[in-house]
Amino acid sequence: METAFIIETIVKILVVLGLFSALAGFATYVERKVLAFMQRRLGPMHVGPYGILQVLADGIKLFTKEDFIPQGAVRPIFMIAPVITAATAFIAMAAIPMFPEFTIGGYTVRPIISDMNVGLLFVLGVMGIGLYGPLLAGMASGNKWSLLGAARTAIQFLSYEVVTGLSVLAPVMIVGSLSLIDFNNYQAGGVGNWLVWKQPIAFILFLIAGFAETNRTPFDLLEHEAEVISGYATEYSGMRWGLFFIGEYANMFTIGFLVSLIFLGGFNDLWFIPGAIAILLKVFFFIFLFIWARASWPHVRPDQLMWLCWKVLMPIAVVNVVITGIVMMFF
């Protein structure tokens, strides 16, 4: 292997890590502000101008807080669980092409850490592993709420993994590749080429599943305060809790990128907007959608969640795949 490739990869890894950690923090600020405005509030105002430094203050707080491990917890697992969440969230980003290729000083950079031919499968797989974070955290905490949260993690993540997979199967069939760059390239040439027009049902199903996978309202059952205190994270504090948090926000970005890439034309230029900006706009729209939905909708009950998954979404996804197949076969 070339040294340059190694250096490039390491630099990319560091950039992704640093950038998305920071973005996660920034997203919290944005979330708080947006939620506040939607609720006729101001949100954080005191730290820095318009409370912008609140993120920094929270970061300092999280880092300096006592690393507390409860007496009844299984220490090693308790300690490692948040790392799994954060790690899987970031690893999943390895196969995502963030931007179009660009050149710095004659060196062509491909803003993807690893362009593998099964990129989509890898992303979904790693995100699937991400369920071990909350699951282990909840089981290791030695706390009833945590255990309930862990159980909810298992059912929710596993169930919606099926919907994600099935819904994305139809676009995969159309594109005929698992590489996300191929997806991007397939949709080159304007809005009309976006997969969302060919697969609207898959898009909606994937988006719904994305909400569930990232544990966002209306599917935030894992740590719903009114029911299970803080779910699997009940016993966590300080930076360990912070890692869960970063993982969740990183996942939101991952889902945002995935939806943009698979259904909404990826980083292809959009009218006059260059591709890099276009994909960012799309991703931020989805981040905003996550927040918006949280401000607007109540969350569902676990049984409704399961009912929705297995009795509604999955059959629709299967039907969608079958119809797509039939259409492809005969037309």
Binding site: V34, A36, M38, R40, R41, M45, A293, S296
Partner: peptide, 20 residues
């Protein structure tokens, strides 16, 4: 129903009628 919810919150945000 769901979209109406989204509309209400979005409008509130755009109106920026802060009570804090």
């Amino acid at each position: 129903d769901l979209l109406i919810g989204l509309k209400i919150t979005l409008l509130e945000m755009l109106r920026f009628n802060i009570h804090t």
